[in-house]
Computed example of a mutant assay.
Amino acid sequence: MTVTTPASQPQTDVWHVADLDLDAYLARIEQPHARPSAEALHALHEAHVRTIPFENIDPLLERSPVLELGAITGKLVHRRRGGYCYEHGLLFAAALERLGYRVTRCTARVQPHKSGPQTHMNLVVHADGTDFLADVGFGASVLYPMPLRDGAVVDQGGWPHRLLRDGRVWTLEKQTPQGWEPVHAFDETPQRPIDYEVFNHYVATHPHSPFTGRLVAFRLEPGRSRKLIGDQLVVERPDGSSDTTSVAPADLDATLRALDIELTPEELELARARYAGALNPEG
């Protein structure tokens, strides 16, 4: 038996964008229901990054994040939780499509100059006749969308980033004291839901994944980047200055709350145990 899809059915149905509580999402990031435009995309992107944290609590607790949009909405919108790139990217893509934007869901190779994995999710979004890289799920790096144009440079809260094109491949670079450093590389090939399920399984469960053996949480705002990696909380500024603080297990709850991450008592108990174990693997 052959099943046909009506021509009127939008392709985005495979992403179940109707499952998103759009009003709750816009309320969470404190943005209005505005018509699609480059200006509105810029505001939505910044508000999302500044409001919803990047964090790996679920993989740390040996739980694979659920990539169904209803589950993502419950976690990132209705709770004071965050997630990593697939959760952020799928949520933002659905919100943009519900608002009328054209979105392509892509994948990128992290640190391509170091043979990094092709596991990162980013988006290409069309607004006002221009394609933009939208990358709300790349931790403490990208605050604003970037025009998909060879050589384009955007100041990301004090840290300049640029896009370079080589054939079909775009490379996002960050300016450092040592010069421009590649962040990730991608092309505009559309991905499917199953692709992110495969990537998610590796990132959430593989022992070599950077998100399974230690706590990671990032926050980015103009002039300040905060990174909790393992037991080190690092606050960086565009002038190159930074502060590093060691975070003891007893201080974990307060530190996470300062990063806008609130855990349930059960999650906190498990996180403290895993956190302490990661700090003292022999104990």
Rank of each mutant, 00 (worst) to 15 (best):
D166A: 11
E39V: 14
A271N: 07
S64G: 12
Q111D: 11
Y25C: 02
A27S: 13
H78T: 12
V198Q: 13
S241G: 09
A93Q: 02
S115D: 15
Q178P: 08
L233W: 00
Q31Y: 03
T107N: 10
E181K: 11
E236R: 14
A185G: 05
A278V: 08
L268V: 00
A140W: 07
T2H: 14
G137S: 04
T255D: 13
R192W: 11
Y84P: 14
T205Q: 06
A43F: 09
D131I: 05
L99R: 05
E188Q: 14
H161P: 06
S242N: 07
K75H: 06
A43Y: 08
G157E: 00
F218T: 09
L259A: 04
V234E: 09
E173T: 04
G213W: 13
R219F: 03
L268H: 05
L164P: 06
Q232S: 12
P265G: 05
V142R: 10
H161E: 05
V136T: 02
L263P: 00
T2E: 11
S225Q: 09
L263S: 00
P177T: 01
N280L: 12
P36T: 03
D19F: 03
L172A: 07
I229G: 13
H45V: 10
G283V: 12
E173I: 05
R226Y: 00
Y144D: 03
C106F: 10
V17I: 15
G129L: 04
H120K: 04
T51M: 02
E87M: 11
K114Y: 15
R162Q: 02
D150N: 06
V153G: 04
R79T: 15
P32I: 00
P265T: 00
H206G: 09
W15G: 05
K227W: 10
H33L: 08
A140I: 01
E87I: 07
L22G: 08
V234A: 07
V3E: 08
D166K: 09
T51S: 05
R80N: 10
T73K: 09
E181G: 06
E46P: 08
I194W: 15
L67S: 02
L133E: 04
A185N: 04
A204H: 05
R35Q: 11
M121R: 10
P59A: 01
T244A: 10
Q111T: 10
E269Q: 13
A271V: 03
D128L: 03
V203P: 09
L233S: 00
E282D: 10
I194Y: 15
L143N: 00
R149K: 15
V3H: 14
F218M: 14
L76F: 07
D251T: 03
P32S: 04
